[in-house]
Design a protein around this nucleic acid. Structure first.
Lengths: 191, 191
DNA sequence: GTCTATAGGGGGATAGAC
DNA sequence: GTCTATCCCCCTATAGAC
């Protein structure tokens, strides 16, 4: 009972890492099996299909994000600090072997992935944008943020630029990612 | 002589389209062959390997971009119009079956693609950013643009957000992409 | 230039033994 | 829970006939 839960968790960790590293079409059951020193079929015992595995990865990620944003440690922060926390998530991806955002990776491969997985990606994307939008609106109302346009479109710009710059950092180095984060801050923080 | 040049061009067109639609790992020689009603091996006659094919696609794209930006029709435009032209490139991708930027697509798969291809992606990325940077600097100097930060970091933000929002549009619809473009314009145009 | 045929590898997935 | 064995499909790439 404990063993299987640990196995599932370990497999999900590996799958999440591989998805961020190589995309859906870029990793295989064999990658996970060899990392765990077991055979291919053992992974199928825990997750019957690659689609089921990837869906479980995204669902767990969505749960995690939901827990974070509803936790007092994040929820009670000032808007500027919330935004810093948000950027920190992706900075950690960047530092951790140049991983990219799951949403961006799967959207590049969107036309090749199973339908059930598409729905999960869409949900994660929507939920992330929704939180950013509310955070930006809150900060603008309190005078911490200053920007033209709606919180929704500003949120879309920030999120898409973070996704894009994580990808760019693979070819041009981490500096590009950090430049984009700093530029985003300058463009939104009230002088 | 003419025939082979036409074949090469047709194959490059298909490969470029497939790369933007499904990524490097998401398309195969068979996709191209069946679209041309020929067999797999015929494609190998024109491009010996998948790496060579993808490299040729990017090189042709780079040439095209270079011709555009050095052509009087673009070169002599006002900075605002240059920026509009830039956004239009990606708007056309979006309209044309939801394609994404080649650079972003290949950077998501960066850890799985051949080395020669990586170098081409890096070059295209650098050249695009360089043009954007110069355009932004020019516009700022002339008073058409107004923004904090360096032209380089603003260029990185704009380019990465366009890449990211094209991807986002696949899950959330074209509206997201257009929102990001409009927000970018608001954030850079002098009031 | 395109064909048939084939080599040689990798992929996801399942059945049945242990 | 993990193993071996296997199925079946798709992939890149090459050789040699036409």
């Amino acid at each position: 009972m404990v063993k299987i839960e640990n196995s599932k968790r370990t497999i999900l960790n590996l799958a999440e890492s591989l998805l961020q590293d190589r995309g859906f079409n870029g990793f295989s059951y064999a990658d996970i099996a060899s990392a765990l020193n077991v055979k291919n079929a053992a992974i199928h015992y825990h997750f019957p299909s690659k689609e089921a595995l990837a869906i479980a990865v995204i669902q767990r990620y969505r749960e995690r994000f939901k827990l974070w944003i509803n936790n007092a440690r994040i929820k009670d922060l000032a808007p500027q600090e919330k935004l810093n926390w948000f950027f920190k998530i992706y900075e950690d991806f960047r530092v951790n072997n140049g991983k990219v955002c799951l949403v961006g990776a799967l959207e590049v491969e969107f036309n090749t992935i199973p339908d059930g997985l598409k729905k999960e990606v869409e949900s994660l994307n929507r939920e992330t944008l929704a939180w950013l939008e509310v955070t930006l609106a809150e900060g603008k109302k309190h005078g911490a943020f200053q920007f033209n346009g709606t919180p929704a479109s500003k949120a879309a710009l920030i999120y898409s630029s973070v996704q894009g710059s994580l990808q760019m950092a693979r070819a041009l180095g981490a500096k590009k990612f950090r430049e984009v984060v700093e530029q985003n801050k300058m463009d939104v923080l009230a002088a």
